[in-house]
Amino acid sequence: MLDMQDISRVYRTDLVETHALRGLNLSVDAGEFVAVTGPSGSGKTTFLNIAGLLESATDGRYLLDGVDVNTLNDNQRSRIRNEKIGFIFQSFNLIPDLNIFDNVDVPLRYRGFGGKERRQRIEKALEQVGLAARMKHLPSQLSGGQQQRAAIARALAGNPGFLLADEPTGNLDSLMARQVMDLLEEINANGTTIVMVTHDPELARRAHRNVQLLDGQLASPDLFARPAAADDVDLQPVA
């Protein structure tokens, strides 16, 4: 499903050169539920951005479903994001002006489905996450857990083979977090590959396989359970 070979990512500014990933090798099989853990600054976000085709690796090979994504242009990458990948973010990233139905609709629009097909898919996805009754609500009218379930519905609506989750429970209290994790497990059980980035070892344990990042590389499996840092620092690519 996902095969990363020797992936590196360097951020350059005028003053510093930051090596976010240094020769990462990772492969994920179809149907797996993999948790990627690691402390702040270990390269989790960079890994996620590259895995999700939001940015490109400086070096290395990345095959997604057998396709070498480095050879794709921006439009083709957009198309793959749209059709094959579902995103789930820590802060949900629902569009505040759109109601739940329209939020789930967003990727389907770019897919070019007809109105009927979109409606069916949206309703099915919202049913799956238990929000069928709330589709006319605005995100602000929902609880955090409901918002994240709506975001999951948006990720699922296009039937992606591959879900990328970034700290999906990071902004939720423990009860809601559990519900969201239950939902993700259920989705995985239905055959969707999930890669989840988290610094919470508790959460990571619920995945089939844990991978730990350290200084932009895969740590050896016996290096487990490192203490997480308090803050998460974002690296933004330099345009």
Partner: peptide
């Protein structure tokens, strides 16, 4: 929107 698959 770009993440969700909108092209440039």
């Amino acid at each position: 929107r770009r993440a969700l698959g909108a092209s440039k």
